[in-house]
Design a protein around this nucleic acid. Structure first.
Lengths: 199, 199
DNA sequence: GTCTATACTGAGATAGAC
DNA sequence: GTCTATCTCAGTATAGAC
């Protein structure tokens, strides 16, 4: 069948979101999708590459909107460095749009994060775009030392991954992803602009 | 043998640090320790509880030093709210001491984080103490709404876990854990004191 | 090219002899 | 307390039908 591949991805997305990546066996997926076990390896090669295909299907839209927003900012400012807030806003808000349109996918990203698969996935699907944002951020914060800047980016990575993906352990309106991102941008902007710790 | 248990924990610590938790099989551990597979299940019950025992052995020292520092601060201030920086400093610095004395263990914690096992471990071994710090932090930031405060704590969790445990993707002096924590405290303190994002 | 049936390897867990 | 033997189930690999 022509769309065995799509059906596998759809089914995997549902099951990964509900039960996690590691806890979902390929046999569960193929049973629900009604195909044979080896079809997975024919189309994808491995369980991991099935996950990769799943992420790739949605990551492109996020990356495209991120770049559009960044380029719009750069055009507005014409050469001058951008504001930290604006850069972070351009980076985080597109994820809120995906979250609204496709909660299933965000739940899978949450699983990816909480199961420790995020570094590989981020590197592969998001890093090329993210590098442009880091360059803009560096220009916006010329007074920080290289080391201080690198560490603050590292802090941001942690807060970001945890916030976009992990379920907070307190009750929260499910659909307020925009608000969550706005709070995150405010918090991180202040952190980035803090005076460097003395040594 | 009386110390089969200790030998298993020691061996597991080495192997978990070097190769990760999931990638280390019980069979590797028992071969290196020179004991039988079933001994693991006799002494610990499961692979997961072996890890638990390993963490428990070191977590107590961290928790004790954290509480001591917090109580010393509270005594100094006698009733008045503490400063955000001081609270965070008291919370993060003890981890730097463990890192210096026992790099092996910190590497295991890094594995725990990057393999997505941190929530469970943190809940079990660190949360009771951490709650006292959250209470102090709340008193230090009375003007934040409950929601804003909860989210900022969430951001901190992400930055913390990522920073204490994850290997940064840039070169960094291995033993500068104190410096890393100081930078983190400065970053987070500024974030906590940022004006709340408007809604 | 697409898929089915089946076999292979290695994981954690367990029952019961000693 | 310890060890042997065995169980179940995972991801993966291959042979061959269509």
């Amino acid at each position: 069948m022509i769309d065995t591949k799509e059906k596998l991805i759809d089914t995997a997305e549902r099951l990964f979101a509900d039960h996690g990546y590691a806890s979902t066996s390929l046999r569960q997926i193929i049973n629900k999708a009604g195909v044979n076990l080896a079809a997975v390896h024919y189309h994808f090669g491995s369980k991991e590459e099935l996950l990769d295909a799943l992420v790739h299907r949605k990551a492109e839209a996020v990356n495209r909107e991120r770049v559009e927003r960044l380029e719009r900012l750069e055009a507005e400012m014409g050469g001058r460095p951008l504001a930290v807030e604006d850069i972070l806003h351009a980076f985080f808000m597109p994820t809120a749009n995906v979250a609204a349109a496709n909660p299933q996918f965000v739940r899978v990203m949450g699983r990816i994060h909480s199961e420790g698969l995020m570094p590989g996935i981020a590197q592969k699907h998001f890093h090329p775009t993210a590098k442009r944002f880091l360059a803009a951020l560096r220009r916006a914060l010329p007074d920080l030392s290289e080391a201080e800047f690198a560490w603050r980016v590292h802090f941001m990575m942690g807060a970001m991954a945890h916030t976009m993906c992990a379920t907070p352990f307190f009750p929260v309106p499910q659909d307020d992803f925009h608000g969550r991102m706005r709070r995150l941008v405010a918090f991180l902007s202040a952190g980035f602009r803090a005076p460097a710790a003395e040594h």
